[in-house]
Computed example of a mutant assay.
Amino acid sequence: MRLEGKVCIVTGGARGLGKAMVEKFAKEGAKKVYACDLNEEALKELEKTYENVKGYKLSVTDRKAIEEFKEKVIKEEGKVDVLVNNAGITRDALIQKMSEEDWDMVIDVNLKGVFNMTQQFGPEMMKAGKGSIINISSVVGIYGNIGQTNYAATKGGVIAMTKTWAKEFARKGAQVRVNAIAPGFIKTPMTKDLPEKVIELVKSKTVLQRMGEPEEIANTALFLASDESSFITGQVISVDGGLVL
């Protein structure tokens, strides 16, 4: 059991990549996995399946609710070992057609949401002297993508914050590691509505000639959450099947 005794938090934990990570962490012996999401029904299903999973309705844009959640977790468990900042949305459009509302919404969830969660839990890890923060970025945050100005900006920002926090939280000898995962095109609810011709185009540009599975991202997150990656921090790991080489 690679996460035995660890207390983990996964935002956007009710479906897609988040759900895969919650399930992986639970199966690998985590003491408690807090799955945070707005989908209460899906959270209840996870709780029914895994006795070490606790669903918690939480918006990463609600700073007061996040602070209350932190206090609850510390009171219940006394620590947080792993934080996965996974919650994210898309509102795609070419820049000429992108509304200010769609820009603000994506920035608020994908970028500020990561800031909000880490601002609460990072210092707790630093105080404890150890911990692992895993930020879910995207290859789009490294290389850009047509029609995703807002999304690319947030995912690039997540990478910049990752490298900054790796330096900040390791001050004074604290073994707090901060890394990012940059998925390529993965089979999730966020990509299932893509036109078939787009999917085939992506596959043709991917060295491994397929889309990735959520579990393949979860496996990477498991490695970064575990003590096996104890000397890895400030890194961006692309899990994209060779989409960009």
Results as ranks from 00 to 15, higher is better:
105 M>S: 14
156 G>H: 05
56 Y>W: 15
241 G>H: 02
162 T>G: 05
177 R>M: 09
160 A>H: 09
5 G>P: 07
173 G>E: 11
141 G>K: 04
167 K>A: 13
91 R>P: 02
185 F>L: 05
179 N>H: 03
189 P>R: 03
47 E>N: 06
50 Y>K: 02
104 D>V: 04
224 L>M: 09
206 T>D: 04
211 M>K: 02
238 S>Q: 15
162 T>Y: 09
99 S>N: 07
235 Q>F: 05
145 N>G: 13
126 M>F: 10
19 K>Y: 09
164 T>E: 10
148 Q>F: 14
78 G>V: 11
97 K>V: 04
61 T>C: 15
174 A>G: 11
69 F>V: 02
31 K>R: 14
133 I>Y: 00
208 L>M: 11
77 E>I: 03
163 K>R: 14
22 V>W: 01
97 K>I: 03
5 G>K: 12
136 I>H: 00
170 A>S: 15
36 C>H: 08
205 K>Q: 13
128 A>L: 07
177 R>Y: 12
162 T>K: 03
50 Y>H: 06
215 E>N: 14
124 E>D: 03
204 S>G: 13
68 E>G: 12
193 D>N: 15
40 E>I: 07
82 V>N: 01
168 E>L: 13
243 L>F: 11
142 I>P: 02
88 G>R: 04
1 M>Q: 08
221 A>Q: 05
206 T>E: 04
42 A>Y: 02
6 K>H: 11
96 Q>E: 14
55 G>Y: 08
222 L>Q: 04
146 I>W: 10
156 G>Q: 04
172 K>D: 15
233 T>K: 00
139 V>Q: 01
244 V>P: 00
123 P>N: 03
109 V>S: 01
99 S>E: 13
216 E>M: 10
38 L>A: 08
155 K>E: 06
91 R>S: 06
217 I>Q: 09
147 G>Q: 07
79 K>C: 09
153 A>W: 06
192 K>H: 12
55 G>P: 04
52 N>F: 00
80 V>R: 00
164 T>Q: 07
106 V>D: 01
27 K>D: 13
237 I>E: 04
174 A>P: 08
155 K>L: 09
100 E>K: 11
224 L>C: 07
185 F>M: 05
18 G>V: 07
203 K>T: 06
163 K>W: 10
72 K>I: 00
41 E>S: 13
152 A>L: 13
39 N>E: 11
3 L>F: 03
192 K>Q: 15
149 T>I: 09
170 A>E: 14
178 V>S: 02
16 G>H: 04
70 K>T: 10
148 Q>S: 12
185 F>E: 03
190 M>T: 09
118 T>M: 07
201 L>G: 12
232 I>Q: 03
147 G>L: 04
161 M>W: 06
51 E>S: 08
10 V>F: 14
176 V>T: 03
201 L>R: 14
134 I>R: 12
100 E>N: 11
159 I>C: 06
110 N>G: 04
10 V>C: 12
173 G>R: 08
125 M>W: 00
68 E>L: 13
37 D>H: 06
